[in-house]
Design a protein around this nucleic acid. Sequence first.
DNA 1: AAGTGGTCTAGACCACGGC
DNA 2: CCGTGGTCTAGACCACTTT
Lengths: 270, 270
Amino acid sequence: MGKQDEILARVMDLIESMEVGQAIPSERRLSEQLGVSRLTVRAALDELVHEGYLTRRRGSGTYVSRPKIAQPLTLTSFSEDMRRRGMVPGSRTLDLGTVSAGARLGRRLRLPPEELIVRVRRLRLADGEPMALEVLHVPASLVPGLTAADLENSSFYELLQDRYGVVVASGTQTIEPTVTNDEESRALGVPLHSPAFLFERTTLNQWGRPIEFVRSFYRGDRYQLVTELLPRRGRDGRVGLGDARSLSVIPVGRSTAARSTPPPREEDME
Amino acid sequence: MGKQDEILARVMDLIESMEVGQAIPSERRLSEQLGVSRLTVRAALDELVHEGYLTRRRGSGTYVSRPKIAQPLTLTSFSEDMRRRGMVPGSRTLDLGTVSAGARLGRRLRLPPEELIVRVRRLRLADGEPMALEVLHVPASLVPGLTAADLENSSFYELLQDRYGVVVASGTQTIEPTVTNDEESRALGVPLHSPAFLFERTTLNQWGRPIEFVRSFYRGDRYQLVTELLPRRGRDGRVGLGDARSLSVIPVGRSTAARSTPPPREEDME
DNA sequence: AAGTGGTCTAGACCACGGC
DNA sequence: CCGTGGTCTAGACCACTTT
């Protein structure tokens, strides 16, 4: 564990005992008090600024920011995301079984087609309402003895780490627009052919081996992606909008009423 | 312009003259050759690594990477994005007119409802094929004398900066899944009720004043969002997948054939 | 053993904000 | 004016990869 991480934790504690808008001690003061160089302090603060906990004002100071409404979410932990939004997360396992991978899944998980995988379909709920339908695929050899109950009460990633010693290290996720089919509509409680996000995520462990492949259907009427666009100097010195950092998935809306097909949306601006 | 930016440009030039997989000079050598400290070199390389041009291997060296298939795109410059994909971008202005803002647009652009705005509908093409339908709204006072021809041949942001002295500084973009309506289907050449991304972007200048509000409909059969998920230590020291950095918009597929409604998609894994 | 990236140090100058 | 964040320097040690 580097000093930077230690500093980060210390400052995080400090922030939590402070009011929004208050200035934290200056970088020089912190480096002195904590016995590290200013650069080390800065590196730690950089992270907290990037994550939205702090705001810097040149010539003035560094301030505790209100956790942004569109605070970056993990894209991976549904439960934590919902809790951060003040909603009560839930999970209902629809079915769980072992099947052979087949060609397509084998390719995604880099397994021979005859290898066994555990396939779990589950419904993700927020405040009791269906938000997403998730189909999880994991090599069966990785999770011996996995039951539906295991998934109801704890994070799958925590389970992987604590019980199976599997550590997630990286992943890739693609996002597409789609419309719900018959089965998805029923599960999510939306009209047939409603707009939805299709997330496909492949997760790797520390050695680059695929751990899981997940397909999730998120209700389009309750989910929005938000990105903040930051300025970026072009190669020619020009300024434009660049990196889309801090992609957030935010639940929106409240209506539970059934809708017609195709679902209404805010009319075009005229 | 800081030294870091100069170094960045120098290294960028260097990279372009090298083969993928070759190692660039070590950080120490670069700092010596370029007459700056190693930290400055590192800061510059950090950016290039973040943008995917370079890969670091500890104990070994820093290598030119193949521009990733899912190289981070700007989300804002359609033309540049398409060129990076090796496609020929195009733009066809469907109509351009001046209307009063009204309540909703006025709110988005922070203008009184009676204020005039320029509204432009244009089709974005790649290799001659429609990819997206874009509706652009700009306060009329910002862009006096704007014509359809202006938009055909140059980037709108370049135009803003060069002719009108308006500098984009930040922005927020939301992304939703939707289905195309009648008009959008015709414009994009896809069946009615095809899945599509709806991007809504509000762009601000350096003083936080809204410059533009853009609604774009991207064909769901040609576009995918890709995010890389990076590990992130939790506050409790646990490791999970965290920040979704480098959101990319990538065009996919090639088919131009009309499809049924609802459009087919890869069948569910079984 | 030599060279690499990863981290850290102690100090410096600059541009900017607020007094 | 002084204190702030933003940038840069020259040097150091470590863990790691390569030979």
